[in-house]
Design a protein around this nucleic acid. Structure first.
Lengths: 354, 354
DNA sequence: TTGAGATGAGAAAAGCTTTTCTCACGGCAA
DNA sequence: TTGCCGTGAGAAAAGCTTTTCTCATCTCAA
């Protein structure tokens, strides 16, 4: 007869009956007993500290491996005030920006045995506080704050926390450490690429001017392409991409031969709109996007050449920095910009193998 | 003169000098001292256990609040074998499925003081083991395994862990608890909606037949729409959506008046392809997608009517279940399917306010 | 042979909380 | 007055690991 219910013991607990019964977990007591030494000797052997005979050390290590001992991080953390845990706080519910950042953080820290709490707060200060408090209770070694844009704060006060805080892709408090992508350099990369392909009449269709990133990218655009065409500010939607193309092509006068878009969604719509008008991409017009959002950039026909902000690298840096702070190492405060890079696909023509 | 470097103390540590110096943290010792009682009395007062005068209890509580005492979760966990921490393991790097699941889990568990480790393993068994070990070291109360499809296992063995495991949107081991969306019901919802709008010649353009979800959806489609048109299996790409439309419309014979697509990407491409051919959506053909991937469904012109798998609710259930198991409560094993729902936008016509 | 120094290993405390056990005291009944 | 019981509160242990201090033993030199 099949049992109808199961408990945690049946669902997951392994069969460690031959070891400790009390908590089902192998502790350093068991190692010490099995190796015939004291607890302190066992500890020292495993941590390569203290003084003892090589044979003793080796024996303890071997025994520990054999019975599958893994030190309890809670006990270790209680003693050392290090939990090997950090928190990633974000208000980016889509994960568009946070997920690459998270991947970078994890990649950098997993080797150090650090795990990451992901806390998504949707612009809700109360929820933010709940999450921060929960993390502090758990003695996180540090917090990385992340968001959707670099000129907005998270709706939660992180300024007087008992743990270090690092900001990634969101605005930090004065005197803090913050990481962001170099919008100016990234935009310059895009415009230079277009110009390198011989494009001279380059338009810039982008998002709302209220975004710092938008202004930086526009500044780079203007400094390279000049003031031939006005920057077209709009929203971050495909609808705006279509609208912008209509505006340009429905107006009299000569048309652009290159369009630098503020993000990939706009770029995708621009490409679609051009195709619908019979304008060929990339033969007649080259289009560059921004973000390298795989799901948009790669699915566009033709696939988008676009600027990648290297968010994963950004996450990696942020992770290593918060770790350094947690370990008491000194870190220079301020905003660090990381360079973007161009991902060449087929929406510009030229050599796609670049 | 501005200082060039800062350490953790300056970055984040608050000013608690007036309280404990040793670890910078307010402990129950401080509460006891400030309230003039012993540690045990303080503990009992705060946890509403033990016996004592009401005045004592109130005083301790008030003092605790005043000096900002928060119990150390590490110490608590060491004692109770509960860390108020769970791990979410996934191989879905895009976060397409994991992020909504994660949101549901967090939403359900934050009230219980539980925080969630997010561990993304990219089909790398070694990395998976590293993450699982790291989580076990930290005494997670349970693990939720999640993925990209319900008929594939994560590349890591979770069958003999000392903590409960629950599967969400990925295949579980026999005898485990798993949650997934009801593909049959969801597909039926879509086809019925099309038929309710008077569509009779309904095509089904979907992903690879190797997916269980694809077969289930196709089964529902056939059971309702009959065998009028063959199911068109392909890939999960926009390219396939375009190709499928070309196949259908370039072939002789009468055309469909409704298309049920296996996911939103295919649906988007189908809508685009139809528009390019001058076929009007929704006037001539109604199109339904699957997934309700906001970024695709809402940006399609017209926005997609699509099936939502309720992944957030699924995450919520998974979270509550793993919590129940962690607390030793009995849970019925097996696969639980959660109903999908239809999100009506404009790609079908009919009443968008439904 | 005895004392010093080196070497290996164990005892104990600390880190923070909860829980069980014990104790002191006041009141009440015999 | 004595004994019992209930009440309120504290002492101590447990949970697991690391670190410091102490101790025992052995070797070698005087």
């Amino acid at each position: 007869m099949r049992k109808a219910f199961l408990t945690a013991n049946e669902v997951g607990r392994g069969h460690l009956e031959n070891q400790r019964v009390r908590s089902g977990r192998v502790t350093i007591h068991d190692v010490a007993a099995a190796a015939g030494v004291s607890i302190s000797t066992a500890s020292k052997a495993l941590n390569n500290t203290g003084r003892m005979g090589d044979d003793t050390r080796e024996r303890v290590k071997r025994v520990a491996t054999e019975i599958g001992f893994r030190p309890n991080a809670l006990a270790k953390g209680l003693l050392s005030n290090r939990s090997f845990t950090i928190g990633l706080l974000t208000n980016d519910t889509y994960g568009r920006f946070t997920l690459p950042v998270m991947a970078g953080i994890t990649e950098a820290l997993v080797d150090h045995g650090v795990s990451v709490f992901l806390c998504t707060i949707e612009d809700d200060p109360a929820l933010g506080k709940v999450h921060v408090d929960a993390m502090l209770d758990k003695s996180v070694d540090g917090i990385i704050a992340s968001g959707k844009r670099i000129d907005r704060r998270l709706p939660v006060d992180l300024s007087n926390l008992p743990v270090p805080v690092v900001y990634a892709f969101t605005e930090g408090t004065p005197g803090s450490v913050a990481f962001c992508a170099d919008d100016f350099q990234g935009a310059a990369l895009a415009v230079e690429w277009l110009m390198g392909l011989g494009r001279r009449r380059i338009a810039h269709v982008t998002g709302p001017e209220s975004f710092f990133s938008v202004r930086e990218r526009a500044r780079a655009y203007r400094s390279l392409a000049g003031d031939v065409l006005p920057v077209m500010y709009g929203t971050w939607s495909e609808a705006w991409g279509h609208e912008a193309v209509a505006k340009i092509w429905d107006a009299p006068g000569s048309k652009p031969d290159g369009i630098f878009c503020g993000n990939d969604q706009i770029a995708r719509a621009v490409v679609d709109a051009l195709r619908e008008r019979g304008v060929r991409v990339p033969q007649d017009v080259s289009v560059v996007g921004f973000d390298n959002w795989e799901i948009v950039a790669a699915q566009t026909r033709p696939p988008l050449t676009t600027v990648d902000m290297n968010l994963k690298a950004l996450g990696r840096e942020a992770g290593l920095t918060v770790l350094a702070l947690a370990e008491g190492r000194a870190v220079e405060p301020g905003i660090r910009t990381l360079p973007c890079e161009l991902v060449v696909r087929q929406s510009c023509g030229g050599n796609p193998d670049h």
